[in-house]
């Protein structure tokens, strides 16, 4: 029997990340990356944000958003390198870097999110 492929599982993570990124990142990036720094909208204060971030639901939400986003990137970036630059021969090293990066990022995210006081 051949080795079972984990491709469907990775594709599922890619797809879930794609949905999460499409639905949620635009508003996050608009608020925190543009509207608040440019003064279009008044940024919430430190205490308000901390109170929001330490809530268990927010922690879970941030963790899922960050982790899925990274796996979405890993999958897409891997195929961009395959097809775009035609470097299929570096297959294994690309896979290791992309998915390894996503796993590492997930661990870092978990650590940082759990550490919120």
């Amino acid at each position: 029997m051949g080795k079972r492929s984990n491709e469907p599982f990775l594709w599922m993570l890619f797809s879930a990340g794609g949905v999460a990124a499409a639905l949620l990142i635009p508003i996050h990036l608009f608020l925190f990356g543009l509207a608040f720094p440019l003064g279009w909208l008044e940024a919430p204060g430190y205490d308000t944000l901390l109170a929001l971030a330490r809530h268990p639901v927010t922690r879970l939400y941030l963790f899922v958003l960050c982790s899925l986003g990274l796996f979405h990137w890993a999958h897409r970036f891997r195929y961009t390198l395959y097809d775009g630059l035609q470097i299929k021969h570096l297959n294994e090293i690309i896979n290791t870097l992309c998915y390894g990066g996503a796993i590492l990022g997930t661990v870092v995210a978990a650590y940082l999110i759990l550490r919120i006081p």
């Binding site: 958003l65 986003g69 990274l70």
Partner: peptide, 11 residues
């Protein structure tokens, strides 16, 4: 496909 880099930047 390159939009995925922006996703990582955001994360």
């Amino acid at each position: 496909e390159l939009s995925s880099i922006s996703v990582t930047w955001f994360v």
